[in-house]
Amino acid sequence: MFVLTVDQHDSRRTTDRVPELLTALEGLGMRLPPERTAGDEVQMLADSSDVALSAVLRILELGGWSIGLGIGPVEHPLPGSVREGRGDAFVSARLSVETARRTSSVPVSVRTTDPRQREQTEELEALLRLIGREILSRKPGQWRVVRAMREDPSATQGDIAERLGITQQTVSRAYTTSGWREEQMVHPLARRLLAMLDLTSDRPSPVS
């Protein structure tokens, strides 16, 4: 399973952004939905690579958060609240968010407890940081176009231009420079790495 522990940047000098984050993560289909665990920290549990990746992408897009992703078994039966969760994935998420806090460029860290998965874990972390760099480097104008295309994948660039009140050339330029096409092309690889790490981790055991 996948546990995400995320921590707000510079929380002592900025407003509380936890409600904003919880809203941004609505509708993802988490196994245990995101909750504030302490102060400006939020934790959540996903049981699929699709949901885990979607959560990481949304948090990166929102900006201002350190992301720790722990992959591995958790104790069953699952509790009613993620704050009561236990298991290797929770331990790994706690350790990885500490690492993410110290990462200045793209604050994402991935960890498992199985040393045999070290190479694959490092590959996934590198890929997520590369995706994150694309996301964090986009300008507001590029995001307008990317979000419009994401909301309606069947729309043409002419449709997007008319909807946003800009020229088709502006849409084309924003799309090309945003790196959106290239980012989408590596999403399947990220999902496969996530799923592989989950599949090869130790299976959960019931609480005795």
Rank of each mutant, 00 (worst) to 15 (best):
L193W: 08
E35H: 11
D159K: 08
G132L: 07
R17T: 08
R147P: 05
P206G: 10
G87C: 07
E125V: 09
V6I: 15
A89Y: 14
L130W: 15
V207N: 05
I166K: 04
A148R: 06
R13T: 14
L45Q: 10
W180G: 01
S66G: 09
L127C: 06
R17W: 09
A161P: 07
E122Y: 10
M1H: 05
G85T: 14
W143Y: 06
T113D: 07
Y175V: 13
I166Q: 03
R192I: 13
V207Y: 07
F90Q: 10
L25H: 00
Q157H: 07
V108N: 04
V145P: 06
R191M: 14
T200Y: 13
L22G: 08
S48R: 13
H9I: 00
E182A: 15
Q142H: 01
S49T: 01
V145M: 11
I67M: 11
R163F: 04
Q169V: 15
V18D: 05
P77L: 01
S105W: 02
P19M: 01
G179P: 09
R58V: 10
R102H: 13
L95I: 11
R17N: 09
R129E: 02
S81M: 13
R138L: 02
Q168M: 04
L57K: 12
F90M: 13
L199R: 13
R163W: 04
R181C: 03
E134R: 14
L69S: 05
L21A: 07
L22D: 04
D47S: 14
L95W: 08
T37C: 10
V42C: 09
R31G: 01
I67S: 05
M196Q: 13
L189S: 03
S96T: 09
A46S: 10
V91M: 02
P34W: 06
V108R: 04
R31E: 11
L22K: 06
E182I: 01
R13W: 14
W180N: 11
L53N: 01
R111Y: 05
W65D: 06
Q142A: 00
P79R: 00
S92Y: 05
R94V: 10
Q43Y: 10
L199H: 10
I71R: 02
Q184D: 05
V91A: 03
V146N: 02
E20T: 06
T112E: 09
M185I: 04
T103D: 09
Q142L: 00
T121W: 03
V91S: 02
L136N: 00
D159W: 12
D7P: 04
Q142N: 00
E75G: 02
R181H: 12
T156E: 04
S49P: 09
A46F: 12
E162K: 12
G72F: 02
V56P: 02
R118H: 12
H9Q: 15
R150F: 08
E162R: 12
L197E: 04
Y175A: 10
K139Q: 15
L4T: 01
D159R: 11
D47F: 08
R101N: 09
G158D: 02
E183H: 10
M196W: 11
R129P: 06
T5K: 15
F2G: 00
Q168N: 01
V110K: 00
A161E: 03
W143F: 07
G87Q: 08
R13E: 14
W143V: 15
Q142G: 00
F2D: 00
D88P: 08
L189H: 04
Q169W: 09
T103E: 15
D7Y: 07
